[in-house]
């Protein structure tokens, strides 16, 4: 990564829990630099007093009444699990 680079690829890859090869790091850094530079265009427009838009259409209170419905059987829940034991999913030892 060059000194002018604004993207700390190691830090971001760590947040995203993604192992990148040295090649990928180099390639992505360069490509993302270019894309981010292109993104700077959004600074050209004045957004003072403009509300951010999180949803296409503003609707409120889309909710269900509190009631329980049938869910998965244990078999359905674990159908795609890569490793299981005693109706639980097994993972390599969890480190805090």
């Amino acid at each position: 990564m060059t000194n002018t680079s604004s993207i700390d690829i190691e830090y971001v890859a760590n947040l995203a829990r993604l192992d990148l090869t040295e090649n990928e790091k180099k390639k992505f850094s360069a490509q993302l630099e270019e894309v981010l530079k292109y993104f700077e265009r959004i600074n050209e427009v004045d957004v003072t007093d403009v509300e951010p838009m999180a949803h296409a259409f503003p609707v409120f209170n889309v909710w269900d009444e509190d009631r329980a419905e049938e869910g998965f059987t244990v078999e359905e829940a674990l159908k795609n699990a890569p490793a299981k034991r005693d109706d639980q999913i097994v993972v390599p030892k969890v480190v805090e």
Partner: peptide, 18 residues
């Protein structure tokens, strides 16, 4: 973990993600 490809080279749960 619950589904999707699991690497068989992981040494712990964090490594498993990466």
């Amino acid at each position: 973990i619950r589904y999707s490809h699991r690497s068989d080279r992981a040494i712990d749960s964090i490594d498993l993600y990466f």
